[in-house]
Amino acid sequence: MSSVASNQSNKPYEPLEYSTEDGRLRILGFWIFLGAEIVLFSCLFATYLVVHSHTAGGPTSKELYDVKEFMIETFLLLISSFTCGLGTHELRRHNAKGIIIWLIITLLLGLGFIYMEVNEFVKYATEEGATVGRSAFLSGFFVLVGTHGAHVSLGILWMTSIIIQLAKRGVTAVTARKVFIVGLYWHFLDVVWIFIFTAVYLTGMVL
């Protein structure tokens, strides 16, 4: 890339992902997109909370949620957010190997989370008869938590593709930007999960 600014110049230190106009634009664009994602999830939250008590005689949140399960899910995601952050940390040191290792660990934790979640859904459906069509409450639950899960799954695919690109091309302005952005996405999913943990699981234990 001819337009990659080098860090040897007299300019203050600038991370590689911000070094090109294109990189800066895309990072800002992605932040704006995350703003939109906040609104998207807020609608699902609002819908879930409105229909939370509409169980139509089916299972209630108190009957369904299991502390051990959702705590393990929460810890998996929280730690994956940390390891993903370490990937960004290695990115700042231009250490391709380090990035790849931390991203792979992140991926594994993400896969673990998805495995747990799928198990949880299957258990609800088979043991409690709790499916998306059972009641408004369950529609809200499955679609809110499922949308987050779909985001995580997409993140896993995306991160995999970026690991491949990084392995092929090393740390350049373009791959640096990609790693940084997928990191933003991953942390953001953790933020969403914190609210699911709070508004769905913890609240579901109280109300």
């Binding site: 819908t47 509409h54 139509a56 089916g58 069509g133 059972r134 009641s135 408004a136 529609s139 499955f142």
Partner: peptide, 16 residues
């Protein structure tokens, strides 16, 4: 897929 967000049946909320 037969969910019940806005149906009248099974606790859906058309107003939502």
């Amino acid at each position: 897929f037969g969910a019940h967000f806005f149906t009248i049946a099974s606790g859906g909320s058309p107003m939502m």
